[in-house]
Computed example of a mutant assay.
Amino acid sequence: MEKHVVVIYPHPDDESFGAAGTIAKFREEGVPVTYLCGTLGEMGRNMGSPTFANRETLPEIRKRELIKACEVLDIKLEMLGYRDKTIEFENRMQIAKHIKDYLEQIKPSLVITHYPDYAVHPDHNALGAAAIEAVRLMDSENRPTVWAQAISKDFPEVLGEPDIVNDITANFDKKFEAILAHESQAMGVLGQQRKRNPEIDSIKEAAKLNLGMERFYIWRYEE
């Protein structure tokens, strides 16, 4: 059993769409989980469906949604305070040292983050790279295992089969509840899931088909 799991993603809702089923399974097992969230997603384009947010109100709305989703998942939240869509321009080593400080305090046995260059969004790639660097900077005997999540369309062909494939069907209700907590974002993304499977009437069932497996690669460090 894991001692403590730290999830590191850049945006509110990355945890819910990306790893909420895996997180819920760890919490069922009694494993503490902490989410280090990079930004408030304040530059996101989704403003609710129908629209209820605007550029000025979105940061506070997304912060409230993030807190609610973490309550649903029963995980501790730490906000890193970076600005949405700018992480790639930050000093990566400074971010890595910032994350390392958290990891040395929490002492997790497992870190979950994005796989650099195969996570679609520049913030995903940049924060994933910084998180992996943060673990590399730790003393080798104290390093947690890193699970890196790739989400680009070509990742299986380039990277091969993932090391960890979690069927989270049993925890999908919790994942879906966490997704819906991100009210300003949920329907925009879930609508895309529905379009991929128009023959399925239920948005939830379409989402389960597309989001019911969570896949990760174990990051291997060279000594």
Rank of each mutant, 00 (worst) to 15 (best):
G128I: 08
E214H: 01
P108C: 08
I168K: 04
Q185G: 00
G41T: 09
Q149P: 06
E29G: 10
I106T: 02
S202N: 04
D123M: 06
N46V: 14
K107Q: 15
E161M: 09
P198W: 00
L40P: 02
S152F: 03
I218G: 08
V33C: 05
E157M: 14
T86C: 12
E88W: 14
I151G: 02
Q94Y: 13
P12A: 14
H121W: 03
D74F: 01
T57K: 11
P32D: 00
L127P: 09
P50Q: 00
E183D: 11
D74C: 03
H98E: 08
L73V: 00
A148F: 04
E157P: 08
N54P: 00
A134D: 07
D84E: 10
I95L: 10
Y102V: 00
G188S: 13
I106C: 02
R45E: 15
T145E: 14
G18A: 04
T145P: 01
F26G: 03
A96R: 12
I218H: 09
D74A: 07
G18K: 01
R83W: 11
A186S: 11
S140F: 14
F89A: 13
G212V: 07
D201H: 14
M47W: 03
D74N: 09
S152Y: 04
M138C: 10
K153R: 15
N46S: 15
E60M: 07
F216H: 09
C37E: 12
K208W: 07
Q192Y: 15
R220K: 15
D123E: 12
L137F: 13
L58T: 08
V72A: 02
Y217I: 11
Q193G: 09
G21P: 05
G160M: 05
I218W: 06
I75P: 02
A126I: 13
L190I: 09
K204G: 14
E177Y: 01
I112N: 12
E88T: 12
R83Y: 14
A186R: 11
V165D: 05
D13N: 08
H114Q: 15
A19I: 08
R62H: 05
K204I: 11
W219D: 01
K100Y: 08
I95V: 15
D167P: 04
